[in-house]
């Protein structure tokens, strides 16, 4: 297990390093002069020169890269050009919206998808199964922001059960925060739940065909007991991998959904940064997203290996 951990950890670090190089190249080297991009075409040459000075753009690229990366380690992400506050502060504020949203959506989709997938698998070929599979096909095809708009129309505008957007902040109480994140989390969860339900179904079907399941049934366990005690455990292994993949989809999806609900999360931050040409913010937020995705997938791999010893050797 130690060897497995070391190999995976090395590849995690290499991926992150490579990602940071790519992001740096795209944002700082490819466009030529970052200061002119940030200030736009009509900027005064003096202003551009001043910004170059302020951002330390006169240093060679490799020095700037090293400054940026070592800053990431110490939590110094630079200063936002438009907000005039440290990027780390901006990110920390917004993370308290985006992260709970992603976790809320992940929890919702898991709690819906696993039972639904199990039910479909145990009723394979029957009307319930066909119905569930049809619904999941539909769930995969529905764009989450479109679904979100109708959630707002029905549950916020007509029924007034939830706010149509905005976020009161966690200071207003946990409950208020959860209420504000509920519609966005549902919108995010639908597609993920559909995918996960399908994976759960096929993984369960696969385990249900195994000999030890027949043995369990033969020794007198009911179908329900067999599924819960034996099939589910093994079926959940592939589901676990999907969970890691989904996290990255959820983060990306959250970027759009936050815009539908006007939530002050990382997604809103990054779009504001784009419209204001605040490349300093874009660079670090993208790096943070990639970091989160790669790290979650690493953790899933480790969890996976802990559950299934065969995988440790393959690494």
């Amino acid at each position: 297990m130690t060897r497995f951990l070391l190999t995976r950890l090395t590849s995690l670090i290499l991926t992150l390093l490579a990602a940071s190089v790519v992001i740096f190249l795209v944002v700082e080297v490819v466009p030529g002069d970052v200061a002119s991009v940030m200030l736009g075409l009509n900027a005064e040459p003096e202003a551009v020169a001043a910004l170059r000075e302020e951002l330390g753009l006169n240093a060679p690229a490799h020095v700037r890269y090293l400054t940026w990366v070592s800053g990431l380690f110490t939590g110094d992400f630079g200063q936002s050009h438009t907000y005039r506050v440290p990027v780390s502060e901006l990110i920390a504020d917004r993370l308290w919206v985006s992260l709970p949203l992603a976790i809320y959506a992940l929890a919702l989709s898991t709690f819906i998808a696993i039972p639904v997938g199990l039910i479909a698998a145990t009723r394979a070929g029957k009307a319930t199964d066909t119905g569930i599979m049809g619904l999941t096909q539909l769930g995969i095809a529905v764009p989450n922001f479109w679904f979100a708009m109708f959630l707002v129309l029905i549950f916020a505008i007509n029924l007034r059960w939830f706010p149509s957007g905005g976020f009161p902040g966690w200071d207003e109480g946990l409950w208020q925060g959860i209420i504000a994140l509920t519609l966005p989390a549902i919108a995010l969860a639908v597609q993920q739940a559909s995918i996960m339900a399908r994976v759960t179904r096929s993984a369960t079907l696969e385990t249900l065909g195994q000999d030890y399941i027949r043995t369990a049934r033969a020794k007198g366990l009911s179908q329900r007991q067999t599924v819960i005690r034996h099939a589910m455990r093994n079926a959940l292994i592939p589901v676990l991998t999907i969970l890691g993949l989904q996290f990255s989809f959820l983060l990306a999806g959250a970027i759009i959904i936050e815009n539908v609900f006007f939530l002050p999360g990382l997604g809103r931050l990054i779009f504001q940064a784009i419209t204001q040409n605040d490349l300093i913010v874009v660079k670090s937020v993208v790096m943070l997203l990639v970091f989160a995705i790669v790290t979650v997938n690493f953790l899933v791999d480790v969890a996976y290996a802990a559950v299934d010893p065969r995988l440790r050797r393959r690494a």
Partner: peptide, 23 residues
């Protein structure tokens, strides 16, 4: 294969954000 893994770390929307932010 490692380059593949690298691209996989960037969701499509994030790639689009990077490209759009610059171009």
């Amino acid at each position: 294969m490692r380059s593949n893994d690298l691209v996989f770390a960037f969701p499509s929307l994030v790639i689009a954000i990077l490209i759009t932010a610059v171009f």
